[in-house]
Design a protein around this nucleic acid. Structure first.
Lengths: 253, 253
DNA sequence: TCCGTCAACTCATCAGGACGTCTTGACGAG
DNA sequence: CTCGTCAAGACGTCCTGATGAGTTGACGGA
């Protein structure tokens, strides 16, 4: 029952109580919460108030509601790891590319849809690739799946000069992926930089990645540099935050 | 005006239209959206429907609403960077610790509140530190501020044996921070591993970090290893995703 | 036994109204 | 000119009431 004199809005009190019960294990992961009607009786509030409370918990990623079934406590996500070593030349020689290698090693059946297009560099792309704004870039737009489920979106951009007459402008880049093709044409990779952030998904991303409410996406912008420091490739990746954990390792200096 | 026969819920149509107008620049960053009353007239829906639409945009982090003032387009966040080099010994010798060094270099006035306590290791801590579950650990619970604003939460855990009779069990760890004290007692750091993820904040975190709705947090678990591979310290950090971008760099192998 | 029907239960959506609090700015008293 | 008052308009909260749509399981017919 809510306290009307506390000054705390009723729907927040309901949300706080449910949140506490979930944390305490009264409602275990995967368990169903009482129906809206029951919550109305339990707390002595109206149904929209109960719905506001549930909406809050959903935005926090604590519960998901299923139309016609009920509201359920979100089970903890199964976490996958992406190690820095997935980009090593050794791994590249054994496989077709970073993502396919990673997924195969984990026992998933990976697949990817690729669309190639050519663009003029916008300001951000120009800055990352150290080229002029408006210069032509090759864009590889990929949707990666594991066992049919979309798990990652990636948009790769390279200066057009680096990809002309190479398999990078083809849907299938061949063994070792685009990085292998770059190195074959004399552009040996010297280092990588990854910029990592997080935000809420756009509706498109939420739908593609089949994200539940309250699940953010992790964004990674990776830039590959040549041994002389020239930027060779920029790769914008979007991952579901509840399905991925990134790991980075480096020696103390 | 919404299309009642399209099957798409009215509040989603309103949200989509507003989202498109924001993306197109009709409502610029920082600009005020029409009031709820105006939106009711514009789209021909009731006020709860308009509110549902605005709530959706807020959960996406696109807008913030201010009581008594209106609803505003969220301006793009000012991004800070954390480079791997902030953990170098050279930086440590010049400063008091990673966070204070970072903030000072950026022109902020940094401050931090620290609470020390001792715990028994839970399963996760035991796994990361390679110690027995239940073994005693020293916990440093820190709230970091820049110009008075809370920007980062950090909970550091070390095996108690490593901290006994050192300044690590004091609020002020002295010049160079806890890592410098560890190295002084013969525990030279060999490598770091960071595990990066993202999720929606708990209500506590949202309040401490003054997070707007729809802003996720980035979580970092950093483990520092000795030169022999022994885990020395585990540090759980929580950052506002709209105020930080992480950068990692490594040479190609 | 099997399977289709259908009632009952679930959440999703929407309307319309009421009252509260907060912010802003006009305006008048000093 | 300054400052406090106050009304208007903004969002916040909460209610009652209604309809729609998806899911499940009991039940009865084949």
């Amino acid at each position: 029952m809510v306290d009307r004199r506390s000054g705390v809005p009723a729907f927040r009190q309901v949300a706080a109580d449910l949140r506490q019960k979930i944390a305490a294990g009264d409602y275990a992961p995967g368990a169903q919460l009482p129906s809206e009607r029951e919550l109305v009786d339990t707390y002595g509030v109206s149904r929209p108030t109960v719905r506001d409370a549930v909406n809050l918990l959903r935005a926090e990623g604590l519960v998901t509601s299923e139309h016609g079934r009920g509201v359920f406590v979100r089970p903890p996500a199964s976490i996958q790891r992406i190690a820095r070593s997935r980009l090593s030349r050794a791994a590249r020689e054994r496989n077709r590319g970073a993502f396919l290698a990673d997924a195969a090693a984990r026992g998933f059946t990976p697949s990817a849809s690729v669309k190639i297009r050519f663009e003029q560099a916008d300001g951000r792309t120009a800055a990352h690739l150290a080229i002029d704004e408006g210069a032509e870039v090759t864009v590889r737009d990929r949707v990666m799946r594991a066992d049919g489920l979309v798990v990652q979106l990636a948009v790769s951009r390279l200066p057009r000069e680096l990809t002309r007459d190479t398999a990078i402008e083809q849907v299938d880049t061949g063994p070792g992926g685009a990085y292998a093709r770059l190195e074959e044409t004399g552009h040996r990779i010297g280092s990588y930089v990854e910029h990592v952030g997080a935000r809420m998904p756009t509706p498109d991303e939420a739908s593609l990645l089949q994200l539940a409410d309250g699940v953010p996406v992790v964004t990674i912008t990776r830039v590959a540099y040549g041994e002389d420091g020239t930027p060779l490739e920029m790769n914008d990746m979007v991952l579901a935050a509840d399905r991925y954990e990134l790991s980075y390792e480096w020696p103390a200096e």
